[in-house]
Nucleic acid binder design. Structure first.
Lengths: 197, 197
DNA sequence: CGCGACGTTGATTTGCCTCAACGATTGTGG
DNA sequence: CCACAATCGTTGAGGCAAATCAACGTCGCG
């Protein structure tokens, strides 16, 4: 695995903490690179989610399948994003989500045990993972807010305004299930909005 | 402020990290006790949320008011819970939520600057706040899931099963707005469920 | 007491879902 | 390289869960 593979992830981390060469070395020692084929699963319900994954190239999503068989997308991840079944990951208990590659992808994985050890040994990383968790929490709360306060059309427009790349890149049924509507309804919504302008 | 006021909060922290007397002292030095009257606001939109609050006694909620004037409750907090406009708190930018006392309450407040300093000086607390943020994130993701995957009735039953104390204690319009339904609909739901049993 | 806040109940409306049929595109095996 | 199936998006008809609107009862409190 070449040095350059780590760079995007190290740059990401450096947005929050300063890294000396020794820190970088400590960190890269626990990173694994993995390739995924489109439609390949990274996590499946019932298995413990051992690692968090950073996307070097490609696109993934995590989703839940409820009793009626409906899919509900929890998260998308493209380049420079992390993804996992976070609930399973932090409690090291069986997952309830699928994590699936939407395209052929390349990811960097870091395992739970190693992350915890790293954080215990190096306060910089403890700080980094605190900040990331806090931002993730704030992000999730904003989503709860959108779900509660906005109509289907407003949710679509908000998301499309914020993440146009993702809207273009992921299948529409996955986007619909993220936004909390049926694929049919999203389709009608888009054609209505297109007609307006 | 008497020592015993700190105890519940210290016990909470000790569930995650071990505290030496010196640690306890470092921590209690940054804690402020505040009393709130029912209907009093702790945070209001436009003002920066300076602190996180731990509930010693009473009940609070955070909520958002959208363009149409509808309220949407983001969180409830009773004894032994934290509450704030977390998004405003971590970015120290203007709040978009109200945080309001639902009863006369007593809280312990810790300010952003002091928490950051404490974490920088004492790795135990950095760890504590990481773990708390991670759990909060996982919790919030589960709520997104419930919002997406469950009907109004299912959301109510799930919440009532998980937090019966809160259902009894908070006004029904606040609960309805937390669960993503109108007060009228929640009322009909409850009477329907009561009739069944 | 009387007012305001809260919960209830019923009639009506609507945003979104379900079901079904139909193109377009992709992928796959012969 | 074509044929065929599978996958995905579109469109329309009809249905339902939940919202809206309105009227009324009740309780706590100034």
């Amino acid at each position: 695995m070449s040095i350059s593979d780590y760079q995007p992830l190290l740059e990401n981390i450096k947005r929050y903490i300063k890294l000396e060469p020794a820190d970088e070395q400590q960190f890269t020692a626990i990173v694994r690179k993995t390739r995924l084929k489109k439609r390949q699963f990274l996590v499946q319900p019932g298995f413990v989610c051992q690692s968090q994954s950073y996307v070097l190239k490609g696109a993934l999503r995590s989703y839940f399948v409820n009793a009626e068989g409906q899919e509900h997308t929890i998260q998308f991840a493209i380049e420079d994003w992390f993804i996992s079944d976070f609930s399973s990951y932090i409690s090291q208990s069986p997952a309830s989500l699928f994590v699936e590659a939407l395209e052929d992808s390349v990811i960097l994985q870091i395992d739970y045990e190693n992350v915890e050890q790293l954080c215990a040994n190096n306060a910089k990383f403890e700080h980094f993972f605190r900040v990331v968790a806090q931002k993730s929490f704030a992000f999730s709360q904003r989503r709860v807010l959108s779900n509660l306060g906005l109509s289907a059309e407003e949710r679509y427009l908000e998301f499309a305004g914020m993440y146009p790349q993702i809207v273009q890149r992921v299948p529409q049924y996955a986007l619909a299930s993220y936004l909390g509507m049926t694929p049919e309804f999203l389709s009608k919504l888009k054609s209505k909005l297109a007609r307006k302008s």
